[in-house]
Design a binder for these strands. Structure first.
Length: 273
DNA sequence: AAGTTCCCCTGTTAGC
DNA sequence: TGCTAACAGGGGAACT
């Protein structure tokens, strides 16, 4: 389940591997991955020139376009020397000018690919129109967060997962950010002070940046196999730790549901306001 | 308008 | 043992 750090790892690896390579051919085996079937033809002859990430969106800029890919739950890229025999979950294959193949693999078929005319400011791309600042963007500040949520009745967790407020946080990191901020994810957003927003923004940036650094170091040993996947190896304190003793206070971590999402909390460390 | 629920998918696991 | 049902989850559509 790639969140911003895993997406960044995929992007960085691809940047070193496929920059300036031209797309000779695109084969699509599951059309619904593409927002528009014409993408297949439009990309032929284009080259992967620049690589950007906003939240969980990958942005590959070519001569004419911004090619936007969202991996959703299980999307992965593999860079292979030949087309694999087992293509069950491979839905798109890009034939590249160096003879290799960039294969898009996605068991649940949730991923999406979109194509738009190239924009200077990627936030202007139609695919990202409703996406808020990336968590690591300097414009994502405590006051920005406070202004977005201080009248909202929604839970803190819902707000952290809302990509139109800030982009890049998924279910795992949302729980970890709440734990690090010592806030109960069920807290109503309007109850959060400016000081709470300061802590939340700081911890969000710290945790995502830390995970990216880790992913970036771990991926190197995998580049030889050219399997380009995001690695999630950050040390988790609460997420998936139901019943485990809290790393801080040793009380058991509980699992509950917030906004229909499995949510892990140390109710001793995390205060509900 | 804001907030919630449903749905898209399929592999894995829990339950009978 | 073998089957079905529930579950996981990002985000957009549909609904309240």
């Amino acid at each position: 389940m790639p969140e911003a750090p895993e997406v960044q790892t995929v992007l960085s690896t691809l940047e070193t591997q496929i920059q300036n390579l031209k797309i000779l051919k695109v084969d699509v085996f599951y059309e619904k991955i593409l927002a528009n079937p014409s993408i297949k033809e439009l990309l032929v002859g284009q080259s992967f020139l620049q690589f950007h990430r906003i939240g969980k969106y990958l942005i590959f800029t070519t001569e004419l376009y911004d090619f936007i890919v969202h991996l959703r739950m299980e999307g992965k890229f593999y860079l292979l020397n030949e087309i694999p025999k087992e293509k069950k979950h491979i839905h798109v294959i890009f034939s590249l000018s160096d003879g290799r193949f960039l294969c898009y693999h996605d068991t649940r078929k949730f991923g999406r690919m979109e194509l738009y005319p190239k924009q200077e400011d990627k936030y202007n791309c139609p695919a990202l129109k409703k996406v808020g600042w990336d968590v690591l963007d300097e414009r994502y500040t405590p006051m920005y967060l406070y202004s977005k949520i201080h009248t909202s009745k929604r839970s803190l967790k819902a707000v952290l997962l809302d990509q139109s407020i800030q982009a890049g946080i998924g279910n795992i990191y949302a729980d970890e950010i709440c734990f690090a901020s010592r806030l109960d994810p069920r807290t109503r957003a309007y109850r959060l002070s400016k000081k709470d927003c300061q802590i939340l923004v700081k911890e969000s940036k710290r945790i995502l940046a830390g995970a990216m650094k880790y992913g970036g170091t771990t991926i190197r040993s995998y580049t030889s196999s050219l399997g380009v996947t995001g690695l999630f190896q950050l040390k988790l304190h609460v997420h998936t730790k139901e019943g485990c003793p809290c790393d801080v206070c040793s009380n058991p971590v509980i699992k509950t549901f917030v906004n229909n999402r499995g949510t892990y909390i140390c109710t001793h460390c995390q205060k509900r306001k």
